[in-house]
Amino acid sequence: MNKIIELKKVNKWFDKFQALKDVSLEVNQQEKIVICGPSGSGKSTLIRCINRLEEHQDGTIIVDGNEISENTKDIEKIRAEVGMVFQQFNLFPHLSILDNCTLAPIWVKKFPKKKAEEIAMKNLERVQIADQAKKFPGQLSGGQQQRCALARALCMEPKIMLFDEPTSALDPEMIKEVLDAMVDLAKAGMTMIVVTHEMGFAKEVADNMIFMDEGRIVEKAKTKDFFANPKSDRTKLFLSQIL
């Protein structure tokens, strides 16, 4: 298996608060990893460091063969290969759903408009909101918006997808439609790192589970083992509360 993401002893501080402590992690191509843990444990910070929305101060992060640091030129090129879905969707409210999906392919990947629109429609079809293409984000439900955000990321044809609590801001009824789209994506063989509390989803798609607490990776295990016999007490406590 090819390693596509590699983190070695990554440390990250927000002023005096240390958000990540010696985090090391390897992700293979097509691997699906679910990260869980209490709030403030550094899960989001970890995946945001992978496309450098946050800067780490110590350690190395290598994404698809490129080291990410302040010296990285063309950080945009790496970001273009790493799709991200946010908790708050972050769709562009001044653009229609279709334009949300075609904007970056046209301006960053330099696709001709027609090709970009074809790709966009294909991906909107995939998340089942092709009929909403002409509408604006404000006219869609939360679940539809999040699926559009997923489609928007997919239009860049990324090698890796990062999910930062994609269902936490949704009504319970809409969580399923988003998770279904993500399961579908996982089955298609995408490399995924997902921060979520949806343990049902984790059991279904994750190859490996990671449990984080206070900026450290407390436990990393195969999904089956993680749920069947967690090793650390902290993990046991967390699982007993969340399941």
Partner: peptide
């Protein structure tokens, strides 16, 4: 503008 708009744009590879 919310910070998320900047982050979404960056995450799509925009300079």
């Amino acid at each position: 503008l919310p910070k998320g708009q900047y982050e979404a744009a960056k995450s799509l590879g925009m300079g």
